[in-house]
């Protein structure tokens, strides 16, 4: 088992003829993801790496029964791509594109929600259920099938954490990068609950960072609703206030967003916080011993 994606995932790639779209479509297919089609307006009828290309998402869905979409189109067109996917009945939309205006993300996110679908991202690395399906741009070789769920606001830091987990013998049920923008789709609380409900997940690593107060809400949620062991890590303890640290969402304002507040919230909720990413597997193992 896993969350959100598995062997039944039927994926289309929006922007499949672009440099990133074609590269990652091939990588995902190679990994075993069921990539059933792609879209690129004006290029319908072509093929990319044996994958049929359609002009519109609706055509692609009708022809392939796709239920999931991954978006690689440039930022100025990403909102429209998200709306198009939701309108065509896609139920899980993963937007990789970075640099999307917040207002665009807000509108797309809301429309996707109204359509009863889920959004992951934008500005995210996607997600992977090892050995089942990968919908994203992650280096698949570092992941291993197992029982730890990983939720992260970052890309490469997720790889670092996963690499540590895998080397410590802890595989992953599903690993998700939720995205580094201030407004993204599925977030900590949604995903924590999905992992709680997933029988194949026995522990959760949550990687937060400075900016906003989602970690504080997550800490409260864990205390109320999550019985599986959770370890947190907060990135950006040395970040100065008022400066955006790469991710558009990683900025400490005068009223919220500091690492200290987030760490305090997790500690108050009884969630251990790792001081460096390599401590995460050890802390998780310790918690799981306790549960036994």
């Amino acid at each position: 088992m896993s969350i959100l994606i598995n062997k039944d995932t039927r994926l289309i790639v929006q922007g499949i003829t672009g440099r990133d779209g074609s590269f990652h479509a091939a990588k995902m297919k190679e990994y075993g993801t069921n990539v059933v089609g792609g879209t690129s307006p004006g290029k319908g009828g072509q093929e990319v790496d044996g994958i049929p290309v359609f002009n519109t998402v609706r055509e692609a869905v009708e022809a392939t029964k796709a239920n999931t979409s991954i978006i690689f189109v440039p930022a100025p067109f990403a909102k429209d791509a998200m709306l198009e996917a939701a309108d065509a009945g896609i139920k899980l939309i993963i937007c990789i594109t970075e640099g999307i205006p917040v207002v665009d993300a807000v509108i797309a996110q809301r429309y996707i929600q109204v359509k009863g679908a889920h959004l992951i991202g934008p500005n995210c690395p996607g997600l992977i259920s090892p050995e089942l399906s990968m919908v994203g741009i992650m280096p698949s070789n570092i992941f291993k099938k197992g029982h730890t769920g990983v939720i992260s606001r970052s890309g490469t830091l997720t790889y670092e954490v996963v690499d540590n987990l895998t080397k410590a013998g802890m595989g992953q049920s599903t690993a998700i990068g939720v995205g580094g923008d201030p407004v993204v789709g599925l977030y900590f609380e949604d995903l924590l609950q999905m992992f709680q409900d997933d029988p194949d997940t026995d522990s959760i690593a949550l990687i937060g960072e400075i900016g906003g107060d989602a970690e504080e809400h997550a800490a409260a949620y864990i205390k109320e609703h999550i019985t599986k062991p959770v370890v947190a890590f907060i990135d950006g303890r040395t970040a100065p206030p008022g400066k955006q640290m790469g991710h558009a969402g990683a900025i400490i304002s005068s009223s919220s967003g500091s690492a200290a507040d987030k760490i305090a919230a997790f500690e108050a909720a009884g969630v251990p916080v790792a001081m460096e990413s390599c401590e995460i597997p050890g802390l998780l193992k310790k918690l799981m011993e306790k549960v036994k």
Binding site: S152, S154, T156, E160, T238, M245, H247, A250, E276
Partner: peptide, 8 residues
């Protein structure tokens, strides 16, 4: 390489 890893 990567904002999250850079902060870490």
């Amino acid at each position: 390489n990567g904002a999250g890893l850079a902060m870490a």
